[in-house]
């Protein structure tokens, strides 16, 4: 059902954990629906110098979190905001249709963390949600 890439990222997830002095934290999803992603970032000079995640969810949720953090690590905020769920899915060599919402959640988690950074740093920017909120259970 899952690609080898998904299984690899599920069994050896990259960037799992917390960042104690994170200046950007975003949480999306909810326990009721069975998936929550929490992303921690350390942003310096608009660059994501470190990123970690914690995820409650299925194999695809863990793998998309892992891949999404890989894809934005070391990138600028603007580059990270360009990350689409499609790119995450492609990088994982695809996901079963029923699991596509997990990739949306990963994209949303990155955006939520960056929004948190904006809010904490007094930057008056609002990131528009590009995802399908019915899928990601993201409440604004």
């Amino acid at each position: 059902m899952y690609s080898e890439k998904v299984m690899d990222h599920f069994s050896n997830p990259r960037n799992v954990g917390e960042i104690e002095d994170a200046n950007a934290v975003g949480t999306v999803g909810n326990a009721k629906c069975g998936d929550i992603m929490k992303i921690y970032m350390k942003i310096e000079n608009d660059i994501i110098v470190d990123i970690k995640f914690k995820t409650f969810g299925c194999g695809a949720a863990v793998a998309t979190s892992s891949m999404a953090t890989e894809l934005v690590k070391g990138k600028s905020i603007d580059e990270a905001l360009q990350l689409t769920n499609k790119a995450v899915v492609e990088a994982l060599d695809g996901l079963p249709p029923a699991k596509l919402h997990c990739s949306v959640l990963a994209e949303e988690a990155i955006r939520a963390a960056i929004q948190d950074y904006y809010d904490k740093s007094g930057i008056e920017k609002k990131i528009e949600c590009s995802g399908d909120c019915e899928h990601c259970h993201h409440t604004h």
Partner: peptide, 8 residues
């Protein structure tokens, strides 16, 4: 659990 935000 160590990976889960709910377990924090």
């Amino acid at each position: 659990r160590d990976m889960s935000p709910l377990y924090e």
